[in-house]
Amino acid sequence: MSSPRQDWAIEWLKQALLEVQEYVKLCVAAVKGSVSRPFYARDVMEQIDIIGLGSLTVVILTGFFTGAVLALQSGMTLDQFGARPFVGRLISASMIKELGPVLTALMLAGRVGSGIAAELGSMMVTEQISALRALGTDPIRKLVVPRVLAGFIMCPILTVVANAVGLTGGWMIALTQLRVPSGIYWSSVVQGLYIQDVWMGLIKPFFLGFVIVTIGCHVGLRTTGGTQGVGRATTNAVVAASVVVLVVDFFVTRLLISIFF
């Protein structure tokens, strides 16, 4: 006979597996929905506006101050080796390969993941999702596919913006605080990058954008328990998406390194 603790563990494992199964099913349905009819193009454009343009301010601020603080911190360290002119190299390598994609994804997880989970969660508890189905609309195609496509398209674009703004923030600090001439900074930025790094920085956000949005949709569509449930779903979406962003970042980086290097 199993103990209550074992029963609890088995139950927990079953629930976890069920969640994973449902998440995978949602991802498959979203991918299928992206390449078949009916396709709600207007909703895709609307989500590109909400997810992409709506997140621009937070991404610009994050990118700028990350680049700036990176320049400040690394400037002090590089000084110890008389390597202050190489600050651009350090900033470009850090921002484009890692910080740009990850910080942008984390910002999107907070802003977009929570928003999607709250919106779809509210629709679930007020039966609007059931109403959609009753009206002959597939909620996956109408609600999930446009958000997934928008996240998939906009995350890399926002990452490029964050990278550009981060490098600019670093340049401003290098110029004004570290007294590194602009020419030296920018040539150092270019020297610090290999084409593989640029590819890595561009490819990772596609994966990250996909997981942020699909997690938000999955959590939102499984919301139960009224307004309290919506609050819980929002928190779960942010926590899960933030952790998964870091995990996916690790594995995709590992994969890309094995491909490129």
């Binding site: 039966e127 609007q128 109403a131 002959g136």
Partner: peptide, 15 residues
């Protein structure tokens, strides 16, 4: 479902 309609509790209107 194209030949059916449903009125949900509380209406379930798209807000």
């Amino acid at each position: 479902r194209h030949h059916m309609g449903m009125v949900f509790q509380e209406g379930a209107l798209f807000d």
